[in-house]
Design a protein around this nucleic acid. Structure first.
Lengths: 153, 153
DNA sequence: CTTCAAATGTAGCCAGCGCTACACTTGAAG
DNA sequence: CTTCAAGTGTAGCGCTGGCTACATTTGAAG
């Protein structure tokens, strides 16, 4: 992903040019773009495991959005090479999509288990994990996994 | 906040009607709307503490967006009663905005300290806390605070 | 084979949040 | 008082992600 800097924020042309000073936020925005994608592939993967197939309407129901919204989002995922489908047909994941779903599932499980180990009730943990999993870096995820392992021993 | 359900997802008109079945996602979306607002009031509060005043351009720099984007976002915050400003003047927080900033600051600190206590390096912790703080419920925040207290003893 | 409900597709609207380009204000330096 | 750079405002564009309304396709029941 190319790092675009707006004309207004010329990142103090002083020296380094690598790692702009205060731009945690820029990467946050970048993440936002792929959050929905991850949620969708995760849901598609779930639905295929549960029902054997994945229909548009089920995705729409799961996200509580109209089938139109689900359809347009899926079109973007198709464009981006994450899912495949024929008109009026079921939705499948590409190998890329499957990889992403698997990674998401793993992250999700670690965050969820970690929250529960923290003493959060399962319902709250499930809800929070849903939102948090997209903002947990590899390092933090590793720290959570470490903490879980420690408690298990 | 009124809970709108799209026509397509009529939440199985079977019985209860309270707590639609699988709608963790709906609340996630609702949060999204106020995330930027919280980030902005937090930044404005920071800037006023640091510089004694808060100018549009400084907000734009902090978020690495154009001054136009910052301006329009601030207009929304004005509309929503969080900030105040006169044309070409500095930006201030309303009492409501101040309250929100204070809450955000508190949440932020707990999440940040907690991540550090987990063994995550400070830079990573700062970056992750930025994204996570908006998805941590009161219960989970309390659990984090509890964990911190336990380690301190 | 027909019918009909459910699923899917399409057109078009709105708001949020990015941007560039250009116009206007402000305030400090001359 | 003038000038000029920096800050601010405005017009207009693009993409994402919501929606309703309406059209089309599918597949099962008759």
């Amino acid at each position: 992903m190319i790092f675009l800097t707006p004309a207004d924020a010329p990142m103090r042309k002083t020296t380094s040019q690598k790692k702009p000073a205060k731009n945690q936020h820029a990467s946050v925005r970048e993440d936002h773009a792929t959050e929905l994608a991850q949620d969708y592939v995760e849901a598609i993967d779930d639905l295929i495991r549960e029902d054997g197939t994945c229909r548009l309407i089920e995705i729409a129901r799961r996200f509580a959005v109209s089938h139109v919204t689900a359809n347009r989002t899926l079109a973007r995922l198709k464009r981006d090479g994450l899912v495949e489908s024929q008109p009026y047909g079921p939705i499948t994941l590409t190998s890329h999509g499957k990889r992403m779903a698997q990674a998401a599932r793993r992250r999700h499980k670690i965050v969820l288990d970690f929250l529960i180990s923290l003493g959060v009730d399962e319902e709250t943990a499930a809800s929070d994990a849903e939102g948090m999993e997209h903002h947990v870096s590899k390092k933090t995820l590793a720290a959570m996994a470490r903490s879980l392992r420690r408690r298990t021993e």
